[in-house]
Amino acid sequence: MADHAQTAQGAGETRRDFLYLMSASAAAFGTAAVVWPFIDMMNPSSDVLALSSIEVDISGVQVGQAITVKWRGKPVFIRHRTPEEIASAQKADPEVDAKGHVIANPAGLRDPQTDASRVKKPEWLILVGVCTHLGCVPLGQKSSDPRGEFGGWYCPCHGSQYDTSGRIRKGPAPLDLEVPAYAFEKDTVVKIG
């Protein structure tokens, strides 16, 4: 009799534990389902996402010049590089194997990438003009701007210096300037995004 009561009680506790577990997970799942729309509402909306590509006419940009266009609310740098700038960028290239893995990095790049992997046509360097440190716009688009030791861009906020391939060479920024998705529609028109 005593044994029977104990077993029944034990079984009851197991069943109750199971019910607690199930109702708690249902409540947790329900809460997450309610919270998610609030969080996702803060993410970019469809109209913001829709403004995701622009076409730029680059026929007027002479060798050595650069223009800045606005894409997704950010500046995009389009620089028509001189042969010297291309050469100095290639000089700092890391050595890579066939798969693109870095095997040697003589220039000590922080975020090693070859110049060739960052351009579609060597004379046109197209970059998102946002410092990878804290998001300032680096200087160097005008020839009168400070361009840092490596002839590319210099960020006035915390002193990051980029080379003529937009790679980080000095200062606090962790990564190279981002290369956006782009394609040459014609020789003189580039589509960004």
């Binding site: 803060m42 997704r72 609310g73 946002v130």
Partner: peptide
């Protein structure tokens, strides 16, 4: 950061929130 901005840069959605 994208979630804070509500876009790809500090913009109108950021100001509103």
């Amino acid at each position: 950061v994208t979630l804070l901005w509500g876009g790809f840069a500090v913009d109108n959605p950021t100001l509103n929130r």
